[in-house]
Design a binder for these strands. Structure first.
Length: 560
RNA sequence: UGGGGGAUGGUCUAAUGGCAAGACAGCGGACUCUGACUCCGCUUAUCGGGGUUCGAAUCCCUGUCCCCCAGCCA
């Protein structure tokens, strides 16, 4: 993994480098603060790589902190999946696992302090009323009639709130700032609300819970975070972050810095929308291989390194941007190209009978596991009279540049023989169901002693030895670049109906019987594949296509 | 409309007063027992208008466009 980037620092790393250089900080501490209310997705991966990456580059630590201040939406199921995902991505928080809920006692004390300072009050405005009092973008708000309660009264009321003596929704603790400020966030924001909901960690202990803006800055401060990195939509909240820390006169004051969140085209990124896709069965769960959740990517076959490389490659900036899905796909290809052993697998089989090959004969032919890397060795693949080739590798009326099978044309069977197509067998409906070919016994291994050039090489599998499997081909989940763009239509109307294609009759070379869920393969000329970690069984293997190979032939034919 | 941010090829990122660079995409070519990989070449950008300066993507003024904020969500 890269620890010293060979490119210029992004603006956040520049700030940090400067802070270190001028002695503002001796070491940096960052944090990744997910709310445990859903599964992590590729957008979180960007933040994880940033925060843990910065810590690693500076020989420091990044805290994992669950921001669990809204018990109705949060659960330990999510806590566990988030830890698994961060670890899988290759990061380690060491001893530094924290929960905002660990700070509830301290947070409560800080709230009391604020009241004593005359900087917070208990407000009995209803939600509806509070909205009216808040004003609008252009008009200032009005002060709450409860704003000038005495410190004693506020203290007493806040204690009652804490003790469960007040019903949910009847009042809330608010900061006393300024109802006329143009930044609406600062118009006496709510700090604590009553919620008689048990918490997944603190149980029934609390019936008041602190709001994000109050919790986050103080949690950062308690953990001595130096740089608190978050996304752009929190820019307005920074004023409140700073206000809380300034008025409480805390021993340290972390710096919040905002960066642009990740957007990728042909997908949606918000937890809310991902949840809808799951709940309404547009996909099969959070870990559906078409989902850009970490668990979905893992199941799809993406490597942690490919996701890290992707995140490092897209950069950190402040302008909202859209990354092309192709960049993500390219990141796995790059990684797998080096790592993945090559095998032969026929996705859509077409039977070929080699008429001049002895009926009972079987040959074992040597095949390289990775032509660019001889150290990965070789294996033996069986060959016999009947084989399968890819349906798309045969064409009846083939154009001149189609370097594959057609009557009268000669191609090379990868690592095997040169064969020539002699005859096409069709069923009653005219569908091609079999090819009759002859082979040249002099070309064993794939090269012709007379030196004749054969342009096309195709993959094949011995019919007698083939491993028959299910293969799942995935395509982009949405058929438009930005599913959210159309305000008239729901984003789910743009789900790509062909995003999952199941092939039940694929024929793979027999060595794949040994495959495990840890393996990833390149099916030559097709793409990268792995065993599905959920549905595959030893008796009925299921392979997922991680990503296709680049296909300049497909590109060419599409153009015409 | 008040406030907070942002604008560099098709996309993303760099250049921090001194030759606008890289990646992805695209196009063309070389190589090839994977139409893959690799390699070579090419097309394409500083939001508009003023100003400061020998020199501006960068500094100043001005305009335009885009994003965020009116949850007792985070």
């Amino acid at each position: 993994m890269k620890t010293t980037p060979d490119r210029p620092l992004d603006f956040i790393r520049q700030i940090i480098a400067e802070d270190l250089k001028n002695g503002k900080h001796k070491q940096v501490i960052t944090r990744f603060p997910p709310e445990p209310n859903g599964f992590l997705h590729i957008g979180h991966a960007k933040s994880i790589c940033l925060n843990f990456g910065i810590a690693r580059e500076n020989n420091s630590v990044c805290h994992l902190r669950f921001d669990d201040t809204n018990p109705g939406k949060e659960s330990t199921e999510y806590v566990n999946s988030i830890q698994e995902d961060v670890r899988w991505l290759g990061f380690d928080w060491g001893e530094h696992l924290y929960y905002s809920s660990d700070y509830f006692d301290k947070l409560y004390d800080f709230a009391v302090q604020l009241i004593e300072l005359g900087k917070a009050y208990v407000c009995h405005l209803s939600g509806e009323e509070m909205r009216k009092y808040r004003g609008t973008l252009t008009e200032p708000g009005k002060e709450s009639p409860y704003r000038d309660r005495s410190v004693e009264e506020n203290l007493a009321l806040f204690t009652q709130m804490k003790n469960g003596e007040i019903e949910e929704g009847t009042c809330a603790l608010r900061a006393k700032i300024d109802m006329a400020l143009p930044n609406i966030i600062m118009r006496d924001p709510v700090l604590y609300r009553i919620m008689k909901t048990p918490h997944h960690r603190t149980g029934d202990k609390w019936c008041i819970y602190p709001m994000y803006d109050f919790t986050h800055c103080l949690s950062d401060m308690l953990e001595k975070i130096t740089h608190s990195l978050c996304t752009l939509e929190f820019e307005n909240n920074r004023a409140l972050y700073d206000w809380v820390l300034d008025t409480l006169d805390t021993p340290c004051h972390p710096q919040q810095i905002e960066f642009a969140r990740l957007n990728i085209n042909f997908t949606v990124m918000s937890k809310r929308k991902l949840l809808q896709l799951v709940d309404e069965n547009h996909v099969n769960g959070w870990d559906d291989p078409r989902m850009l959740t970490i668990s979905g990517l893992r199941r799809r076959g993406y490597t942690p390194a490919s996701i890290r490389n992707f995140c490092d490659g897209i950069g950190i900036g402040k302008r909202s941007s859209w990354i092309d899905m192709g960049v993500l796909e390219n990141a796995v290809r790059d990684d797998l190209n080096v790592l993945a052993p090559r095998v032969l697998g026929v996705l859509r089989p077409l039977k070929v009978v080699i008429t001049n090959y002895p009926e009972e004969q079987v040959e074992e032919l040597e095949a390289q596991n990775h032509p660019q890397n001889p150290e990965m060795g070789s294996r033996m693949v069986p060959f016999c009279r009947e084989i399968y080739v890819e349906q798309t590798d045969f064409m009846e009326d083939a154009p001149r540049k189609f370097f594959r099978l057609s009557v009268g044309r000669e191609v090379r069977l990868r690592y095997a023989y040169l064969i020539t197509c002699r005859e096409v067998i069709k069923d009653e409906e005219g569908k091609v169901i079999e090819l009759r070919c002859t082979y040249d016994p002099e070309t064993r291994g794939g090269s012709a002693p007379d030196g004749r050039k054969v342009k096309g090489t195709i993959h094949w599998v011995s019919a007698r030895h083939a491993l028959q499997t299910e293969v799942r081909l995935y395509d982009r989940l949405f058929s438009v670049e930005n599913p959210d763009m159309d305000k008239e239509k729901d984003f789910k109307e743009f789900v790509n109906p062909d995003s999952l294609q199941i092939l039940e009759n694929s024929m793979l070379e027999p060595s794949l019987k040994e495959a495990t869920t840890a393996d990833r393969f390149q099916f030559e000329r097709q793409g990268y594949f792995c065993l599905d970690n959920r549905d595959s069984t030893p008796d009925a293997p299921v392979f997922n296509r991680i990503v296709t190979l680049r296909d300049s032939w497909a590109k060419l034919t599409k153009k015409k």
